[in-house]
């Protein structure tokens, strides 16, 4: 007698890679924002000698990250399915909740990172 289905009911399986990206959506965006802001402003300062460009890069990348994070919170179900998660009743609610909380956690991190340009002059050592 095969009782496999009693223990492991058949149903849609979440994608392994998709789940990783779904779960890590917020922190990955934060990492992207920091990389682009840090690298971009360094290049703008060193090669372009342009504090305005440096500020602009940081502001744009922060805005994009914020839009993406808020978008995720609003359309989480759609994001989940795009990243290979089963539709709602079959989906693991804890994964949903963790993904959402990680986005919430990334919001202040992204905001703080972006707010620096409003408070600190670009392209100077400032001592």
């Amino acid at each position: 007698m095969n009782r496999h289905d009693d223990f492991f009911p058949l149903g849609p399986k979440p994608s392994t890679t998709g789940t990783i990206f779904y779960l890590l959506f917020g922190p990955l965006l934060w990492a992207g924002q920091l990389t682009v802001a840090y690298g971009g402003h360094t290049l703008a300062c060193v090669r372009g000698s342009s504090p305005e460009l440096a500020d602009a890069i940081v502001i744009v990348v922060t805005a994009l990250a914020l839009v993406a994070l808020t978008g995720f919170l609003i359309w989480q179900d759609r994001c989940a399915r795009a990243l290979g998660q089963p539709a709602l009743p079959a989906r693991d609610r804890a994964t949903d909740s963790m993904a959402r909380l990680l986005v919430v956690l990334s919001l202040p991190a992204v905001l703080w990172g972006g707010a620096t340009v409003g408070l600190v002059a670009a392209c100077v050592a400032g001592r």
Binding site: T42, V117, L119, V120
Partner: peptide
């Protein structure tokens, strides 16, 4: 002696 703004990014991340 790294530029202030670079330091500021990392200060913000340290808060996070």
């Amino acid at each position: 002696g790294i530029p202030s703004l670079s330091l500021a990014f990392f200060s913000a991340a340290s808060m996070a």
